[in-house]
Amino acid sequence: MTVLPDADALETALGEAERRGEVAERRRGLLLALPSFAYMVLFFAVPLVIVLVYSFATRTSSGSTALSDWNLEAYRKLGEPIVRNVVIRSVVLALITTVLCLVIAYPFAYFCATRSATVRNLLLVAVMIPFWTNFLVRNYAWRLLLSSGGPISSFTESIGLGPTEILFTKTAVVIGLVYAYLPFMILPLFASIDRLDWRLVEASRDLYASGPASFRKVVLPLTMPGVIAGSILVFVPSMGAYVTPELLGGGKETLLGSYIVTQFLTARNWPVGASLSFVLMAVMLVSTIIYFRAGGKNL
């Protein structure tokens, strides 16, 4: 027998200490995360599960919800013409908004990316400021501008075009949505154009590509991640928009967001409202996955 511990034992002891250190480290991490983890589970995950459960419940004739008779009724209702029209209308409006944003934002982002650092920073801050200002106020501003007898209408009247009646039409909603989400399109586009390797563009010009051809075949494909990311960032909130259509569309043609709110606050059909919210969230989740695949996280 030796008095000194042999090498093997020492190694196991050291390994043990290291393992214990690691366990303690993990415990510390968990402890640090625990308060917000618990908060998010209680006040986010549980509510999410409740919505899911309700989407399978039945609406009783009195307007309350019976949590016993489970079925797919609420999801089947989504196929009915009324709901389907609301969904189609929202998708179309969101698509128009996305395309308009893309057409307006791409040249702007390109212009930004090809300026000196000072001008570029100024322009980017100029884009960010409205994006940070109160969303409701930005929508209200358009309500004021477009109102009958308002600035735009009196302007068109004074130049002999007659008063414009845009407020409470789809056009007004699209204007409001483009205004609200344009920065979401500009920023990822800028990031991808800024990262473009201009030597490739020069190479294409050296190989006798015309300006438009080199844009179509080199610049556009290389900045596609920005286009995809920006489009998703605009399309997704436009789909679920509630405030803008309410204020500028006048609630005449119901969109998805307003329809869901109505199911809860006035129609009292919680299962249908719940199933629609869940479908809306699924659309967002799929879009987000596409966004990450397209490299949106790195923009």
Partner: peptide
């Protein structure tokens, strides 16, 4: 730590979830 990935995913959801869905969730909860 254990559950790190779940926690990470859970923390992404409120950012991408539409306002209306979040509102519905909180009301029901």
């Amino acid at each position: 730590f254990r559950g790190r990935r779940v926690f990470d995913a859970l923390l992404y959801l409120p950012i991408i979830i539409p306002d209306v869905t979040m509102a519905v969730m909180m009301l029901m909860f």
